[in-house]
Simulated scan of single mutants.
Amino acid sequence: MLEHGGNLRDAAREYGRPIADWIDLSTGINPHWYAAPAPDANAWHRLPEADPALAAAACAYYDAPAMLPVAGTQAAIQALPRLRAPSRVVVAAPSYAEHAHHWGQHGHELRQVPYAQLADAVDHCDVLVICNPNNPTGERIAPALLLEWAGKLAARGGWLVVDEAFGDTEAQASLGPHTGQPGLIVLRSVGKFFGLAGLRLGFVAVHPALLVQLADMLGPWSVSGPAQQVALAALTDTHWQEAMRERLRGEGARLHQLLAAHGIACSGTALFQWWPEARAETFWRHMAEAGIWVRLFRHAAHGIRLGLPPDEHAWLRLQQALTTWKHT
């Protein structure tokens, strides 16, 4: 399997520090997670029938005409390449590695293209896959330009797949409202903004014809009953959502400023910052020795991604580790 953040057991084993002593900044997941209500007792007993109320809540929250709940967007990332005949596929690079990994299978011709060259690649592919905002760099592409590309691809039976996993604090940039048109597929995650990665729940906004094909491929009972009930509460709690967006924007700005104060020019989203780091592995080890687990990117994006500290004690430990790094 590909390497991902959140692997604290690996960190604890390698550095001999108990998991409880670590600050995990490796995932970009909101450290102030939604307080999930206890599900109904029979949620553990009944087969998890699809709840129409959950799909309706997702359509309202993501402003999309139709949405399919899936067991994390990972399920859709793995399934979508199996719904097309062998195609010419371009995946923006660098980006979430699972996209290229799965499109590289099932007979597709895969190319990974830097964001700056995507406009030229649109006319020479059948499927274009983009993270917007990008994971890990935070790079963004204007919605109007994405819609132009989607139209070009759809005209020849192609797809534009947009992964908006980190888009909850930038709702105005979402393509969800446009997913009634053929060929435009938008992926959304409950794990990042709501901090509920363990729920394993995401949504796919897509034209109804393709939605049915995807649902058939994933099969029945793909999302657990407890996950459906927790997500329904989170998606309809507008007070929590508004307060959390404001909080995350403030903390994202604080993280950016803290890194800048230590000579690090970074970019990102409200949930993480990223920068190309010449001594990336050395920085990663330095932080690990201080009990701070950050995400090291060794390949296409040679750099560091760093999420939000969960509390003031963690902010102080991060500041201290950055200070000692600056003087190495």
Rank of each mutant, 00 (worst) to 15 (best):
G5M: 01
G5S: 06
G6R: 03
L8S: 01
A11M: 14
E14M: 06
W22I: 09
D24I: 01
P39Y: 10
W44Q: 12
R46N: 11
E49Q: 14
E49M: 12
A50H: 09
A50G: 08
L54W: 08
A64M: 09
M67P: 02
A71F: 10
A71R: 15
T73Y: 08
Q74G: 13
Q78E: 15
R84G: 00
A85M: 12
P86M: 03
R88A: 13
V89L: 04
A93I: 01
P94A: 10
E98Y: 11
A100F: 05
H101S: 09
W103L: 03
H106L: 01
E109H: 13
L110H: 06
P114T: 04
A116N: 08
V122C: 11
N132H: 11
P133F: 06
N134M: 05
N134D: 15
I141Y: 06
A142N: 10
A144F: 00
L145T: 14
L145V: 11
L147F: 03
A154H: 07
R156C: 04
L160H: 10
D163P: 02
E164V: 08
A165R: 09
G167W: 07
G167M: 10
T169L: 04
E170V: 13
S174D: 04
S174K: 03
L184Y: 06
V190L: 15
F193L: 09
F193S: 04
G198E: 11
L199F: 04
V206E: 07
H207S: 06
H207R: 07
V212R: 15
Q213S: 14
M217A: 14
L218Y: 07
S222A: 15
V230S: 04
A233H: 10
A234N: 02
L235M: 12
L235C: 05
L235D: 02
H239N: 10
W240K: 00
M244P: 02
M244D: 06
R247G: 05
L255G: 09
Q257F: 00
Q257D: 14
A260T: 14
A260I: 10
G268I: 06
P276V: 10
A280I: 02
E281F: 03
W284P: 00
H299W: 08
I304Q: 07
I304V: 13
L306S: 03
P309W: 11
A314R: 01
W315F: 06
W315I: 08
L316W: 09
L316E: 13
R317D: 10
T323P: 00
T328Y: 07
